[in-house]
């Protein structure tokens, strides 16, 4: 039962993270390019996502939306909720990376004839990600921890199962198991990003 719960937590976190990264990247990109209306909308979204708690966002998705006829199942709610929250934070992480690219680097790219997309792909993106990676790592870890509120939308994830066990009186074991499970999930992610950081740091800057 615990394994199943752990697997659910991992898969929800995984998809939430992937979507967060995609949303965050595009939000940061339209703001970097200063696309008239879209950049403004992205800005509003980011503030909204970052300044409301995940629990409230999930409540809204799970209990609020059905009232206007949109019924989402628990899993979908969890992933959408996490992506909504994470997108805002990832956008800020990427923004830090984008803003580290100097105007003259872009001009150097332009002056060898790179077109807009090529400039992004070969000059801006690799450098921005390298700079943003520590912030992305921190956000990823924070998001995985946030999954512990998923139980409020009736998902049998780690937290939910642990609470059940607690009610049945398995206090010490389930507490310990819960801590260990999260550690076991997050530690590899942390290490993976740490290694990645060292690699791009070497390629990029690292004097």
């Amino acid at each position: 039962m615990f394994m199943k719960a752990a697997w659910l937590t991992v898969s929800l976190a995984f998809w939430g993270l992937i979507l967060s990264l995609i949303i965050g990247f595009f939000c940061a990109l339209v703001r970097f390019w200063r696309w008239p209306v879209v950049a403004r909308l992205a800005g509003i979204y980011i503030e909204l996502a970052r300044n409301t708690p995940l629990m409230i966002q999930l409540f809204f998705l799970y209990y609020g939306l059905p009232r206007v006829g949109l019924l989402l199942e628990g899993r979908t709610c969890a992933i959408v909720g996490l992506a909504f929250l994470g997108g805002g934070y990832m956008a800020e992480a990427f923004r830090g990376g984008f803003s580290a690219i100097s105007r003259s680097q872009i001009e150097a790219g332009l002056s060898i004839g790179l077109r807009r997309f090529q400039l992004l792909r070969y000059v801006i993106f690799p450098q921005a990600v390298a700079v943003a990676l520590p912030a992305i790592t921190a956000t990823a870890i924070f998001l995985i921890k946030e999954t512990s509120v998923f139980s409020i939308v009736a998902l049998p994830d780690l937290m939910y199962v642990a609470k059940d066990l607690l009610k049945e009186g398995h206090n010490n074991e389930s507490n310990l198991l819960l801590v260990l499970s999260y550690l076991l999930i997050i530690l590899p992610v942390s290490l993976f990003f740490g290694r990645l950081e060292k690699r791009v740091r070497f390629a990029g800057f690292g004097d």
Binding site: S104, Q105, A108, V200
Partner: peptide
């Protein structure tokens, strides 16, 4: 049109 800048502007990565 080739251009060379004051601060080289090689791509560091």
């Amino acid at each position: 049109i080739g251009m060379v800048f004051q601060n080289y502007e090689l791509f560091p990565h």
